[in-house]
């Protein structure tokens, strides 16, 4: 046993000596991982404690699963959780294909200037702060002065106070998110498309494929691995909806569809500085996200032999 151990260690030693330059290159990243990803995991125990910052993690008493019980017994949390999944799920269905479609459309643009121009224009919203985006959305949707409602009323419809109607929140949120992010997200797919050998298209042209056929039979299958990886990542974020933008857009009146886990945690945290509850909610999210990614990856590996790991 010991001799095998020493043999093993010796093997490592030899590896280190031989490839020390490589290990040296890897070192900063390893340190970064340990310091910023593994070390903070120590803090996860807060989820199982009645935490007081002054007492510290070690000094705070254990409470077992009490924090999780509090969460799961709270109907508002349950609703927030369901809302999170719903918003992400709908986002997945409606927002995920948009950058792909955009990338395909850019790819079809022949005029170099027109292409760059339109690309820049759709990238731009990504660089606008969510605060400003929220302001724009609120203005656009204002029932008295908003453009959308002016159009609606000129067409003879009643103005709609979108931001106070729960049934509209998801559309507004997902729609404006598409506007903001789709262009930027299309970069990944454009890069993937750029990686497709141009002779594939030339060959298809000679073989008689139409543009549409080339998109369906060449471009999409060729960037499928990229799409699947992005999809898996997206699924991993299914339980995650960033709170900044929601907080800027939602109203108590729309809580029933707009309140998500992160906003719930934000409000709870503000009320009582309840780090323990917030950590428990975060951990709960992380575990579910992990399970989702794991499953998605499994399925993808089986079905399309593309996988994240």
């Amino acid at each position: 046993m010991t001799s095998r151990m020493t043999h093993y260690l010796k093997g490592i030693g030899e590896d280190l000596r031989r490839d020390w330059q490589l290990y040296l290159l890897a070192l900063p990243m390893i340190v970064w991982f340990l310091l910023f990803l593994y070390k903070p995991m120590e803090g996860l125990q807060i989820a199982f404690k009645d935490f007081s910052p002054f007492r510290g993690i070690a000094g705070s008493p254990w409470v077992g699963l009490e924090n999780f019980r509090t969460l799961l017994e709270d109907q508002i949390f349950i609703r927030a959780f369901i809302n999170t999944i719903t918003i992400s799920g709908l986002g997945l269905i409606f927002a995920f294909p948009v950058p792909i479609i955009l990338a395909l459309m850019f790819n079809e643009l022949q005029n170099e200037f027109g292409r760059r121009f339109s690309q820049t224009i759709v990238y731009l919203p990504h660089f606008i702060s969510v605060v400003i985006v929220a302001g724009i959305v609120i203005n656009l949707l204002s029932p008295t002065t908003g453009v959308i409602n002016l159009i609606l009323s000129s067409l003879g419809f009643e103005p709609v106070y979108f931001l106070t109607q729960p049934e509209w929140f998801r559309s507004v949120f997902i729609g404006s998110n598409i506007w903001k992010e789709a262009g930027f997200e299309s970069i990944v797919y454009l890069a993937a498309i750029a990686g497709v050998s141009p002779t594939l298209y030339e060959s298809a042209r000679v073989d008689g494929a139409s543009r549409w056929q080339m998109i369906w039979r060449i471009t999409l299958p060729c960037i499928l691995p990229t799409i699947i990886i992005m999809l898996i990542i997206r699924i991993g974020n299914l339980v995650e909806v960033g709170f900044e933008y929601i907080i800027l857009l939602y109203q108590p009146a729309t809580y029933s569809t707009a309140d998500v886990v992160s906003t719930y945690v934000y409000r709870t945290g503000l009320q009582g500085t309840q780090y323990d509850l917030a950590t428990a909610a975060g951990l709960f999210n992380a575990v579910i996200a992990f399970a989702l990614v794991f499953t998605a990856n499994r399925i993808s590996r089986k079905v399309s032999s593309t996988s994240l790991w």
């Binding site: 508002i76 108590p252 009582g272």
Partner: peptide, 27 residues
Amino acid sequence: ERATYDKYWPSLLTYMTEMQQTWVLGA
């Protein structure tokens, strides 16, 4: 007492505010 308050109050306030707006807006 604080533990009890912290456990229930945030969700109560959330719900009451939500209903308040729901009523005012006529939903």
